[in-house]
Write a protein that binds this DNA or RNA. Structure first.
Lengths: 196, 196
DNA sequence: CTGATTTGTCAACCATTGTTGATATCGCCG
DNA sequence: CGGCGATATCAACAATGGTTGACAAATCAG
């Protein structure tokens, strides 16, 4: 039987430290770039411990994604979503949640997991807050803008997007346009149905 | 010295076939996923030849990016940019140009090259077509939307974005909004053309 | 034909990296 | 103390994949 007051010596504590280090690494480099040995070095333990603590690199990555997922972002009320997300996109330090997504988007090992997270934790809840036709599509477009922006800004570091003063309002208006689809977007697609 | 009318037997021809195979591979998988041995198998030659023909994997990738860069996209006149790009984003077969970008965005070996290409071949010319303040920023935002959309649609295959009927007009309006952004995403622009 | 140059192949190298099994060490219980 | 389980280390494995050098074969000059 497992001890109840246990987890004293280390155990769960080091596991958490490993997870934290993994989140930091995965948020700053792609899946392939991150080596288990680097994470181990961050924590100060052996590679084997990192591996054994989570089973495999993929499982560690999965745990990191779940741990860093900024679920609270979506608690913002409908009218403030664009502002909240725009600020979020501008501040990479605020959370590694989006970065860990963006960095690993093109990694084959991470793709399925990232897609699931993207649907479940972003597009789904977002669409639930929107009304009107094409809620799913608009939510997905919203997320794609957010990710594209973060990608060019944080990963590629494209210069025109680095300035917060300029990018902030612009980004917010763009996101609002995705959501409020009444204005520039609506036109006449009443016929379109929300599939799936 | 090299023969003048030469390049008949193989030489340059196989080099081209290798490059074509590389473009196809790099457009469908990330830098790390693509193995030189796969490209060699596509063409029907040995790995060593692929390597020796281009010097290294990185140089081959660079050649592929340059080869696939859809520079002609920007020849569209100002009023049709959003339509042209929206259609382009919807049709992955039309060219591997955008895909090869999107796939390799997060690859460390490709990052510098991709950023350079992104600035030189997309944002720069695009900004030159825009007037008003923040042309660079709007062009960058335009490209980020395009890339984010392509990423979620083609790489991640997020469902709500897969339907051309829904995504097409939506994407076009979003891109137009990036370009026209004189005020707060002017509410009424019915000038956009529904093409194709 | 002979020899040199290009074009291509074969096998091996080498570094990287996730993974695994044997082993030591610490905390605890009887 | 002596054993037990969790914790952690070490060394080694195995597979991958880019790279390299020696060599065969085709092409062309003379």
């Amino acid at each position: 039987m497992r001890p109840k007051k246990c987890e004293k010596r280390s155990g769960e504590a080091t596991r958490r430290r490993i997870l934290a280090a993994a989140v930091r690494r995965f948020a700053r480099a792609s899946y392939e770039e991150v080596k288990l040995r680097d994470i181990a070095a961050d924590v100060g333990v052996d590679v084997a411990l990192v591996h054994r603590s989570f089973g495999s690199k993929e499982q560690l990555f999965a745990a990191a994604v779940l741990d860093a997922c900024p679920a609270d972002l979506l608690s913002a009320e409908r009218g403030r979503l664009s502002a909240v997300f725009a600020n979020f996109a501008l501040d990479p330090q605020q959370g590694d949640g989006l970065q860990i997504f963006v960095r690993s988007l093109t990694s084959p090992q991470a793709r399925n997991l990232v897609r699931a997270c993207c649907n479940r934790d972003f597009i789904g809840p977002l669409a639930a807050k929107l009304e009107g036709p094409g809620a799913q599509q608009r939510a997905a477009l919203f997320v794609s803008c957010l990710i594209g922006f973060s990608l060019l800004r944080e990963v590629l570091r494209v210069e025109p997007l680095l300035d917060d003063e300029d990018s902030g309002p612009m980004m917010q208006r763009l996101l609002a346009a995705c959501l409020d689809e009444v204005g520039p977007f609506s036109a006449d697609d009443q016929n379109s149905s929300q599939s799936s």
